[in-house]
Design a protein around this nucleic acid. Structure first.
Lengths: 344, 344
DNA sequence: ATAATGTATGCAAACGTTTGAAAAAATTTT
DNA sequence: AAAATTTTTTCAAACGTTTGCATACATTAT
């Protein structure tokens, strides 16, 4: 046998020949307890390493002080920043964050949600997986809604689903990025797009497209290629772009990773950045300031998103009557660095 | 009021004018239950969205199927890889991972451990925080030991503390990195060291030092400068190195981040990599293959560490009699790329 | 001494579920 | 029709803790 049974309140009661209630009260500094009794019990409890069984308390109080954070991945800077933001607000309030990584997998997401509900999690922060989004599934959310567990969407949202959301203004971020390239003098701007269907991908793509429209630049389909957000996934697409008869003179990457991948390919071809090709990324990940050349990017306030999402949760928790659905959209900020500064 | 009371087994029992036991058995497909009863109850349960309260079960069975993962940060590729590895093995076994980020803070680490124990977590994976390590604290681990909760150390270890560990062979990884630089022809190798006191920092430093010794190269104190693992923290130290009367012709960074920071400073000075200065990092983070020039680095098998740590946990769990303490040390692999290939 | 007060402790129920043993109901065998 | 057997259901306890109410004891005022 392995684990020794933890000391319980009953054990202590037996030792002092008193009732569990007395022990409980003594440990919680209840006023109606004799000073000596209290001291003795507390001392003994400390000595034997008594630790209150929170599971039983959860059952009794129907409170678990646990929140679920369901995200597709934690591999990127952004997600960890969001988690940090959630943590900053919620940890001091006594909440434990249960972080679940779905790997963009619908079934896993479903299982996690079900598990979180079974464990009586008091709130769920959800960034839906790609599979979920692609397929338009939402049945697995029904039970969350039915149970009236506060549900906060982070970034990836369902178009027609009534819940609170904290998202970044990807559209205007992308718009600003492309506009920046245009005003610097770049004319043929390609876009390394994110996976189809995801809000972040589509919003950034829309920003790209609308900006070109605004400046009366025709959209060339061959300049828009998909990636999966990862560095490697930018390699082949970028080569394809450079091999075009009329290659782009600038690339807007859906995130810093693909932008960095693109830069690598471009430099390998002996082209100059930003001289021959201008590059802009998205995220403002720590590394982006130290690549060579440093990367112009769009700052995405992950920490703030986490903090705002926490606020939304707390609002819903305290919200009297029906749910209050809020939709927070945080602005981005264009960070101009070397990769887009063509010195003419 | 907000959350509607979840449906319980008692509610269903009342509805069918039977006892809770019958409902429980019906839901669990117990053989001694009438087929019709079973079907009716299961249907109704589904209809009203019944979900078993796992909290009560945890209390009853003294099993929570929850494991704690306590790490200083999740900002780097490596940690997320470890978590992925743990996840790969443990999720299919029904375990939920409770990921706790200490931000290198002792107090937070202590609080998390205490909370995990209170919540009757069945095992803890711990990478101790820098503060904890610096101060040599270990009292907060006593209660974990006392409770005989399986405790697995990840990477950062206490020298004299009897538990299972899964670590990477930092020493030989560093040794190989430096040896590689030496055999290529670099003579003055600097080291951007990690924070003092941490096992990873010290082991890599030792590898660096011992390799120089082996090749009879005197250690120059001024070539060893501390960083905190982050890109930014490499900037000033690298400048300092380059400003020396006799600057190094190669730099071994404690991780990829600082190596990338160093590269940036070097390139800014108009020096060539690897021509003037050779660079080696540590981690083999995804980005390291796509920097310009690409970074020679030491592969650190994070995923494997997570999987091995899971195995250690499972061993301890099934271990008959006393604890089985195992010490797994995984080998690293030198990944040679452009940043160290001096073409003479 | 008795009543009135104050202080300290115990009882029992509750949270939601499972499970061995007992009881009840239905079926089969004599 | 009674007995034996099988099938189905209920009872009660357990997990660890808290808390309103009752009770016991000690102290003070009458």
């Amino acid at each position: 046998m392995n684990s020794s049974r933890p000391v319980t309140i009953k054990d202590i009661a037996r030792r002092f020949r008193c009732s569990p209630s007395t022990v409980s009260r003594a440990l919680n500094d209840h006023p109606a307890i004799n000073e000596d009794t209290r001291k003795n019990i507390q001392e003994y409890a400390k000595e034997v390493g008594y630790q209150r069984n929170e599971v039983s308390l959860s059952l009794l109080n129907k409170k678990t002080a646990t929140l679920g954070v369901v995200v597709p991945t934690i591999g990127n800077y952004y997600e960890t920043a969001v988690i940090e933001g959630l943590h900053t607000i919620l940890q001091p309030l006594g909440y434990t964050l249960n972080i679940c990584v779905t790997n963009e997998n619908y079934l896993l997401e479903k299982e996690y949600l079900s598990k979180l509900l079974s464990n009586r999690t008091e709130g769920i922060f959800l960034s839906v997986s790609q599979e979920t989004y692609d397929a338009g599934y939402y049945e697995h959310l029904e039970s969350v809604i039915q149970r009236k567990t506060p549900l906060i969407f982070i970034d990836r949202e369902y178009e027609d689903f009534e819940t609170s959301r904290a998202t970044v203004d990807d559209y205007h971020g992308a718009f600003a990025a492309v506009e920046h390239l245009l005003t610097i003098g770049y004319k043929n701007i390609a876009h390394l797009k994110g996976p189809n269907g995801l809000t972040v991908s589509e919003q950034r793509f829309k920003g790209y497209r609308d900006c070109l429209k605004k400046y009366d630049i025709p959209i060339r389909e061959e300049l828009i290629i998909n990636t999966n957000f990862k560095v490697e996934s930018a390699i082949v697409p970028t080569k394809r772009l450079l091999d075009l008869d009329s290659p782009p003179d600038a690339i807007f990457g859906v995130n810093d990773q693909v932008a960095i991948g693109a830069m690598r390919v471009i430099l390998d071809r002996g082209l100059k950045i930003p001289g021959d090709v201008g590059i802009v990324g998205f995220d403002n990940s720590p590394i982006s300031a130290y690549t060579y050349p440093s990367l112009t990017t769009v700052h995405r306030p992950g920490r703030k998103i986490g903090m705002e999402a926490s606020r939304l949760f707390l609002n819903q928790l305290n919200g009297s009557g029906d749910f209050v659905h809020e939709n927070i959209v945080l602005p981005t900020e264009l960070i101009i660095r070397e990769s887009s500064l063509r010195i003419s």
